[in-house]
Simulated scan of single mutants.
Amino acid sequence: MRAVVWFRAAAVLMLLFAVGHTYGFLAFRPDTAEGRAVWEAMNSVRLSAGRETFSYGGFYTGFGLSISAFDVFSAWLAWTLGSMAGAGEMRARPIGWAMFVLQCVGFVLSLRYFSIVPAVLSAVAALLFLVAAVSVRPAKITAG
């Protein structure tokens, strides 16, 4: 199969990852008393950095939404890599390899700190980027 298809499949998966992460992240509410206590403490305990004051909950929210933004960017990048691969741009290959490595790191981190669902999504994305990167071929030159 052509690299463009693999990169586009990775783009769709990354977009689904972004939507799922954003929804799950914003909709999550702890269901135990201990969890609610931590949640409330994160949002009420403040810290100072210079002249600014922040809550741990704010940092948590900011980091979570940063991940969603990164996933949207990754979807765009994968789609763009598909266009590059379709045009025979060999520069898509090393970027595809970098995305493969990045998803492998995401897989390990998900297993360690999150759950099996994001780990599986990272593994599938890694596989898509791997196959896409390997599938990139130079443009055929036609005699004219």
Rank of each mutant, 00 (worst) to 15 (best):
W39S: 02
G35E: 01
R51V: 03
G88H: 05
S48P: 01
F73L: 12
Y56Q: 14
E40T: 07
I67L: 15
E40R: 03
F63W: 09
D71Q: 13
T142V: 15
P30T: 00
A123R: 06
F28D: 11
A78H: 02
A33Y: 00
L15E: 00
A11E: 04
A125W: 04
Y60K: 14
T22E: 10
G35P: 05
A10C: 06
R137K: 15
P118N: 03
L130N: 02
L15P: 01
A49F: 13
D71V: 00
M99K: 09
A37H: 11
G96Q: 09
F7M: 06
V38L: 09
G106S: 05
P94W: 09
W76C: 10
V38G: 00
F25W: 08
A27F: 05
A119V: 10
S74F: 09
R36G: 00
E52I: 06
T142A: 11
A143E: 15
L130C: 03
M99D: 01
G58Y: 14
T22V: 11
G20H: 10
A133D: 00
A98K: 05
F59R: 14
G20R: 11
F70W: 08
L65C: 09
V72R: 06
G106F: 10
S115C: 00
V4N: 11
A11C: 04
G24Q: 12
S44T: 12
S135K: 08
K140A: 15
L16R: 06
L13R: 02
V101L: 11
F70L: 09
V131A: 10
G86E: 12
A87L: 10
Y60N: 11
L111M: 14
G88A: 13
T32N: 07
A18P: 12
A10F: 07
S83M: 08
I116S: 11
E89G: 02
G24M: 04
G62A: 14
A37F: 11
G96Y: 04
G24P: 09
A11L: 02
S44W: 01
V120N: 03
V120T: 07
V117Q: 08
R8N: 05
A11P: 01
T53G: 09
V134R: 15
V108H: 04
L121D: 08
G62C: 13
R46P: 01
V131M: 06
M1S: 12
Y60S: 06
A33L: 00
F114G: 08
V5P: 01
F54G: 06
T32R: 03
V124I: 14
V4R: 15
A10Q: 05
I95E: 05
G144K: 10
L47G: 03
C104K: 02
E89A: 14
M99E: 02
A33R: 08
V105T: 12
V19Q: 01
